[in-house]
C-alpha cells in the first residue's frame, strides 16, 4: 500500500486501521459481547450525571446514551425492576425513589411500549413494601402494571448457561416475558453484601434467595447476570445510605452523592457505585471483581468511555 495517493485517502486509511485495531483489542480482552458495543462507539459505556432533580438527571443521562428510544421500541413489553423490598417510606432511601420510576414508566409509554411492568420479590411483607415505598401508587398512576411477586407461582425455573454455582434460578414470569428490562436500583449500604446497586438488585427478580446466601452471596451474584441481563441499568445515588442498610434504621447515615449512573453494563455501573461508597469508607464488594473476571462485564472503569455530566 502506498501513501502517495493524497492526504484524504491517507486519513481515512489511518482511521480504518485504528478502528480495526480497537475492535480487535476489545475482542481479545472482553469477548464478543463488547464488540457489539464497539460498533456503536459514538455512545458512552457509562454516564454519570450529578444533580438533585432525578427526572432531569435521567433525561440528561439518556440523552447522552442516545435516548430511551434506543432501548425501548414501540410495541415492546418492558419490565422496570426497582428496589421496593422494604416497607419504608421514600425518605429512608431503602427503596428506589418513586419519582424516578414513574418518570421512566411515562417515557416508555410515550415511546409506544405495549406494556410496562413493575415488580419486586420483597423482603418485608409485600403489601407493606409495595405501599410504603410509594412505588405501587406512583407506577400505577404513571400507567404501569404493578405485578405481585409474593408467591413461587409467579416464577419459572430456568437453566442458567455458564453458571458456576446457580445452575438453575426461578425468574419472575414478567422478567422472562419482557423484551426490555430496565434495572432501576438505589445505591445503599448493605449489611451482608457491603453494598447494593445494580447486580444485587436482581436478587429481587428471582424467587428463592436461600441458595445465594447458602453458597456465598459474592460467589453467586454474578450468575444472576447470565440468563437474561438487564438492557439498561439506572442507579439512583442521590442520598446514599451509608450505614444501617439495606433496610435503613433511625440511626442510618447518608452521603449526599447527588448522582445518577446509567449503563448497559451492570458490572460497570456497580463499579462506579463502589467508587462512591469507597469515599464513605465502605470497601468494594468482591462480587463486582468476580463478575468482571468471568467476563460478564467490565469493572475497570479506566478502560471504559465514561461521560461525566453536571446539571
Amino acid at each position: 500500500m502506498t501513501l502517495k495517493r493524497g492526504p484524504v485517502k491517507r486519513r481515512s486509511f489511518l482511521k480504518s486501521v485504528a478502528t480495526g485495531a480497537c475492535a480487535l483489542g476489545l475482542n481479545f480482552s472482553l469477548g464478543g459481547l463488547v464488540a457489539a458495543h464497539a460498533q456503536e462507539a459514538q455512545f458512552p459505556d457509562l454516564v454519570a450525571v450529578r444533580g438533585t432533580e432525578l427526572t432531569r438527571m435521567f433525561d440528561k443521562a439518556l440523552e447522552a446514551l442516545g435516548g430511551l428510544g434506543r432501548y425501548v421500541k414501540s410495541g415492546q413489553t418492558l419490565v422496570i425492576k426497582p428496589n421496593m423490598a422494604w416497607a419504608q417510606p421514600p425518605s429512608v432511601g431503602a427503596n428506589t425513589n418513586p419519582v424516578l420510576v414513574s418518570h421512566i414508566v411515562k417515557n416508555a409509554l410515550n415511546l409506544g411500549a405495549k406494556k410496562v411492568y413493575v415488580f419486586d420479590n420483597t423482603c418485608d411483607n409485600w403489601v407493606g413494601a409495595y405501599r410504603d415505598s410509594g412505588l405501587e401508587e406512583a407506577s400505577k398512576d404513571a400507567g404501569a402494571t404493578v405485578a405481585p411477586g409474593n408467591t413461587s407461582g409467579y416464577y419459572q425455573e430456568v437453566q442458567v448457561p455458564g453458571a458456576t454455582i446457580l445452575k438453575t434460578i426461578e425468574l419472575h414470569e414478567v422478567y422472562l416475558e419482557a423484551d426490555v428490562i430496565i434495572n432501576v436500583p438505589v445505591l445503599k449500604h448493605h449489611g451482608g453484601a457491603k453494598m447494593t446497586a445494580a447486580i444485587k438488585n436482581l436478587m429481587g427478580a428471582i424467587w428463592s434467595r436461600g441458595p445465594l446466601h447458602r453458597n456465598g452471596v459474592d460467589e453467586t451474584l454474578p450468575d444472576l447476570l447470565l440468563y437474561k441481563k438487564p438492557t439498561l441499568n439506572v442507579v439512583e445515588a442521590v442520598r446514599v445510605m451509608t450505614s444501617g442498610g439495606p433496610r435503613g434504621r433511625g440511626t442510618s447515615q447518608y452521603l449526599a452523592a447527588n448522582m445518577l449512573i446509567a449503563s448497559e453494563d451492570a458490572v460497570a455501573a456497580d463499579s462506579a457505585c463502589a467508587a462512591i461508597m469507597n469515599t464513605a469508607g465502605i470497601s468494594t464488594p468482591s462480587y463486582i471483581e468476580l463478575a468482571a473476571q468471568r467476563g460478564i462485564g467490565v469493572s475497570n472503569l479506566d478502560t471504559l468511555n465514561i461521560q461525566r455530566l453536571t446539571i
Binding site: 451482608g192 446466601h213 456465598g216 434504621r249
Partner: peptide
Amino acid sequence: CIVITQGTSCGACAEICPTGAVTM
C-alpha cells in the same frame, strides 16, 4: 453459621434485622 462452616459471605440475618440487633 455458614459464614463459619463454609467461609462464604451470607449476611441474610443482618440484612433483614429491623432493629440492628444482628449486624455483620
